[in-house]
């Protein structure tokens, strides 16, 4: 599980500090360059200032939600093609079809999830170059 794609930059937006920590640990170990944001707004600001290869965002966040960040990204010409993964603790009430098809979200990962599988999904996203999973 060493360095597959050493220089891919991933932005992780998650309001739960413990969850953010464990995602960061696993992605770091897999060799990615991880930046974290505790709110949707922080994530959006970082996306404006910097360039990332992937955004992993929690769906439910105070203020700007992960879903809203997705919508903004798809409207922004510079970010429109950026792969996005959604993390969610929601169940059936999330309109998966809308996010997967209309907003081209690469993957919707339902909590609780396995960090190893998350890392594998991220790796396959970069290897295959596909956005959709």
């Amino acid at each position: 599980m060493s360095t597959t794609e050493p220089h891919k930059r991933i932005l992780v937006a998650e309001d739960n500090v413990a969850m953010l920590g464990v995602i960061r640990y696993n992605l770091d170990k897999a060799g990615f360059d991880v930046t974290t944001a505790k709110t949707g707004q922080t994530a959006w600001d970082l996306l404006q200032q910097d360039t990332f290869d992937l955004l992993i965002t929690d769906f439910q966040m105070p203020g700007l939600t992960g879903g809203e960040v997705c919508e903004r990204i798809r409207r922004d010409p510079r970010l429109a093609q950026m792969p996005v993964f959604l993390l969610t603790a929601k169940g059936l009430e999330l309109d998966e079809d809308y996010y997967l098809r209309q907003l081209s979200v690469g993957a919707i990962i339902t909590k609780p999830f396995s960090p190893r599988e998350l890392v594998q999904t991220v790796q396959s996203c970069f290897v295959e170059g596909v956005v959709r999973v």
């Binding site: 413990a18 696993n26 609780p112 999830f113 396995s114």
Partner: peptide
Amino acid sequence: RDQFVNAATHELRTPLANIKAYAETLALS
């Protein structure tokens, strides 16, 4: 009721997700 179920689901899943993520990370490292 829907709001309650949604909120309760979220509140239950969040710590569960953390426990699973940390436990698995510990076990596999």
